[in-house]
């Protein structure tokens, strides 16, 4: 039998996953709007972001109430602390997706270089980070941190590509800058997915790996070499 309190915790988890789904969908649609030049689709993403923001507020309210009335400990406490932090990361992903959609309407170029691949790649990272929240898998969490290095590489390539484009045709500069900012947004989404998966490590094991030297990008890069 599920108690009333357990039901509240399940409710918090469900809200977080719903936020995650919405952010994932927003991201997917924003990339689609960019690639297809679909301005109407880009506009719908603003509504999704508002839904994400509302859910973050609801979640924050539920967690605060639970903390103040039940003084949870151990796994319940870790779940709630991690949920608060993860919800913030998801909210930021929603904002980045909204920014991608906004910029997709401003750019006139169709030269996207690594962006389509990067979009699919970070969607996968976000999906897997949310999966580790549902069912903890340390290897999967760690794999996300390594995958983020690839995202950084793709962003670097986009950066070089955009520089070349501007050098070749300076009149494209403003459009190219929008593409570059979109690449930066995707790179940030990769970072948020990493942060989510690091919070799941805390949630499952109580280990705080956010700033652990062995999991910093430089250390992971060395390990790969």
């Amino acid at each position: 039998m599920t108690t009333y309190f357990e039901h509240n915790l399940e409710n918090v988890k469900s809200k977080l996953l719903l936020m995650g789904q919405l952010a994932h969908e927003s991201l997917k649609l924003s990339i689609q709007a960019l690639l297809e030049g679909d301005s109407a689709l880009a506009k719908t993403i603003k509504t999704k972001d508002e839904e994400i923001d509302d859910l973050e507020n609801e979640l924050s309210d539920s967690v605060t109430t639970y903390l103040s009335t039940h003084a949870p400990v151990a796994a319940d406490l870790r779940l709630l602390v991690a949920t608060m932090k993860i919800s913030h990361e998801i909210e930021r992903i929603g904002d980045e997706a909204k920014a991608i959609a906004r910029r997709s309407r401003k750019t006139a170029t169709h030269e996207f270089n690594e962006i389509p691949k990067m979009g699919i790649f970070v969607q996968g990272m976000l999906q897997d980070a949310l999966s580790t929240f549902v069912e903890y898998d340390e290897d999967q969490a760690k794999a996300i941190w390594t995958r983020d290095l690839e995202v950084d590489q793709m962003h670097k390539k986009n950066n070089q590509f955009c520089q070349q484009l501007v050098e070749q045709n300076p009149t494209l500069a403003s459009s190219v800058f929008e593409v570059l900012f979109i690449s930066k947004s995707l790179e940030r989404i990769g970072d948020h997915a990493v942060n989510i998966s690091k919070e799941t490590v805390f949630m499952a094991t109580s280990r705080d790996v956010r700033h652990a030297p062995e999991y910093k990008k430089s250390a992971l890069r060395k390990e790969l070499e």
């Binding site: 400990v73 151990a74 796994a75 406490l77 870790r78 094991t205 109580s206």
Partner: peptide
């Protein structure tokens, strides 16, 4: 004990 006890009974 209050963050991550070893035993399920404690938790």
């Amino acid at each position: 004990i209050f963050l991550n006890p070893i035993k399920q009974q404690t938790e």
